[in-house]
Nucleic acid binder design. Sequence first.
DNA 1: ACCTGAACACCGTTCAAGT
DNA 2: ACCTGAACACCGTTCAAGT
Lengths: 203, 203
Amino acid sequence: MKSATRPYHHGNLRQELLRAAEAALEARGVQQLSLRELSRELGVSHASPQRHFPTKQDLLNALATAGFQRFDSIAAKAAAASGQNFHARLTKVALAHLGFALKHPALLALMFEAKRQPAMPPELLTALHAAFSHIPRILKEGQDAGKIVPGDPYRLALTIGAVVQGLVAISIDGKIKGDSLKVIVPEILGHVLNGLGTSKLKA
Amino acid sequence: MKSATRPYHHGNLRQELLRAAEAALEARGVQQLSLRELSRELGVSHASPQRHFPTKQDLLNALATAGFQRFDSIAAKAAAASGQNFHARLTKVALAHLGFALKHPALLALMFEAKRQPAMPPELLTALHAAFSHIPRILKEGQDAGKIVPGDPYRLALTIGAVVQGLVAISIDGKIKGDSLKVIVPEILGHVLNGLGTSKLKA
DNA sequence: ACCTGAACACCGTTCAAGT
DNA sequence: ACCTGAACACCGTTCAAGT
């Protein structure tokens, strides 16, 4: 112990609240997440979060925003390969998405809940757009290379986004068991990508 | 007014609680749903729900179960056509699913939340299985007729289920605007069903 | 069997006051 | 600027008691 005196200012309360909140979120669910409990856990007064997060929803939004940012950096890495095998690249991004979902199921659920808010904070919107930019970008590249059917890439991305988000729901629900994910997901995506690829267009 | 005397027994409290709860759910969200508020609305004491729903979660589970039952009857109607055009029948079931989602978004979200419960009540499980039985059944028929790729129909159904559930998420989020749903959904499903149809298998 | 009223242990949020 | 302590208006749940 470096010092026996704890300062009046916590100094790092905002960060610690986010960290503790995410742990509690995954452990006990959003429903059970309580600001007062977090305060107790961190040894501060129950009113102290208010300076950093005026309302509980502000904490949840901050959690969702940070989630989208982490999600973006993972997806960006998966999308980074610049080869011409668009099928493989799209599959990698989808698997990254799914990996995040299985590691942080409650956080991802919170992120999608946050999307449904009437008035979304601008940082959340920005983080969200960044996180969902990779699939349309790859599709666009695929179209330019003549390997993906023509059409608005954002619209085509909905197809893949829908499948992936649906797979997330199904995976988290435990309908797909553990390791078989690595088999089933490429198979399912294969069906979908077959429908998007030009090679099958006029069969 | 038939009678000025209100009986001590409400007589229909269970039903009325479910009705009022669903209305409040769609109007204000799960987060804001309060048993005490429902009791006030129905003019009963705040402790009266307990006899019918020992805990708040029991009310939510009953709501989810009723939701799956309604959902099942709608999906059953959509699946009823017995023609050989499996593509069209699957699209009909998917559109029925999506229609339900757009009409009762909060209820459907609750239904999928309920699926994530550690200990699911048996009636909920039964209702859920019934609701999700139609797509595998049609796929099986399609396989028997040689129009759908071989493989476990439940596994293939995951593909369609994933797409539909993903479309639900996207539609509710308002990323697809109103009427264009009728155009976009068959288009997206077309991509997926192309991937499942035998006619494109060896292109 | 079904409902009431009081009680208990929690919440989120506000606000004057302290450092 | 950041945190505290008391206060306010809510919750869900329990339980003896009423009908």
